[in-house]
Nucleic acid binder design. Structure first.
Lengths: 228, 228
DNA sequence: TCCCAACTTGCAGAGTCTGCATTTTTGCAT
DNA sequence: ATGCAAAAATGCAGACTCTGCAAGTTGGGA
């Protein structure tokens, strides 16, 4: 009931999303099979049932099709941050908001695995993916700033009309930006570390450890801690 | 005396470096003047006095020329980490190692300013730059791991033959990876924040604040702190 | 001095990406 | 239902990016 996956908007919106998803999925599958460098836009477009010209109506570049998976998760994380219960520290709020999305990934597990494989075999795409993810930080930083303000000041702002906020504080403050950036980075490190482990550590554990390190101020870890 | 800029290697090496620098500088200047999207490889190559084919012997893609500035700083940071005095926490070591490079940037200040402007006006290149920088984390994580080991265990390893290290610990550990990633991220946030401030805050102050936040575990900042 | 390896270059060709005009599809009001 | 306007898809021409290959230059060691 909480999340209705993909059923919002009219037919137009849904069809557009379907085409986009089809292109992304075709791109990832073809790349996993033949190697990303040997997959042309024409092949992707054919597999998705559209013209090559249409491909470029959806993506600015060929590589975007390999990278633009989960592009909607960010919006959900932001929403979760705003809906977080009071009494939590900013870092906790962010951790919980992200943790909620992890389940989402497990649903489409197969495609995400293929995606991870593609990135692992193509440094160029990995670099691009890293950049794209970190580019979302600005938006995340804004909602974090709002959440922090609501938590510390008197709480009376049901309508998040950003205009007043922006006018009062044209320069985004350092702390929210840092928190957002570090949070995104922490998730990325957790995922990378987890992918490289041959042993079957649960991702949740790695995720937990990473945020423990952050909350503690990144001190040198004690010798021989459990899964360090 | 400490740093000899660019004078290492034979003529061949120097010439190569000169060509590379010429291409980067031409790319950045042309992009700052005409907009990055309207600068062709041919224009860059002409300005640097080489053929377009030679351009692609140096860079995998056109965009790399706009992004590959300061590609040597990373190696110096790693060296500084290894040469850090004992008794400092890992986070302090990293902070000081990076701080030493900040002076470097001020020397070539003009080109770096142009570079920042180019990235600011071209989101696509910004994304690429972010990815490239975060890609350096792996190497940084390795030297941080080594430094941490030397600091905590008995210290008798003058020769850093990485082979033994790699064999004993094939899977990079979580903490060094996290520290490296967060450190790089912190610097990036500091730079971005500083660039966006109209007031003339010293970069050193922002840099200092960022690492204070990290060392404290990213708690919610107190209301109305100085430059927050 | 002579030679090899590294570097540069031109060229051909495949593939990426954009602008524009045209056709098809969708949302909506009648 | 039906017609209309906006949105989307398409085909096509053309500029630009990038690669492999073969031939020509140059630096550095034997």
């Amino acid at each position: 009931m909480a999340r209705k996956s993909t059923a919002e908007g009219g037919l137009r919106e849904r069809k557009k999303r379907a085409t986009r998803d089809a292109l992304v999925e075709a791109a990832v599958r073809l790349a996993a099979e033949h190697g990303a460098e040997r997959v042309t836009v024409e092949a992707i477009s054919d597999a998705a049932g559209v013209s090559t010209r249409t491909f470029f109506n959806y993506f600015d570049s060929r590589d975007d099709a390999f990278v633009m998976i989960g592009a909607e998760a960010n919006a959900r994380v932001r929403q979760a941050v705003l809906a977080a219960p009071p009494g939590l520290s900013p870092l906790q709020v962010l951790r919980d908001a992200i943790a909620a999305e992890l389940a989402e990934v497990e649903e489409r597990h197969e495609l995400w695995s293929l995606h991870a494989m593609v990135l692992r075999t193509s440094p160029r795409l990995l670099v691009r993916a890293l950049g794209v993810h970190t580019a979302d930080e600005r938006e995340l930083a804004e909602v974090l700033a709002e959440r922090i303000d609501v938590g510390s000041r008197s709480s009376d702002r049901a309508t998040p009309s950003a205009s007043e906020d922006e006018r009062r504080n044209p320069t985004p403050r350092l702390y929210p930006r840092l928190l957002a950036a570090v949070g995104v980075t922490a998730v990325r490190v957790a995922v990378e570390h987890w992918c490289e482990r041959p042993d079957g550590v649960a991702f949740g554990d790695v995720f937990h450890d990473v945020f423990e390190h952050l909350a503690a101020g990144l001190p040198a870890p004690a010798e021989e801690t459990g899964r360090n």
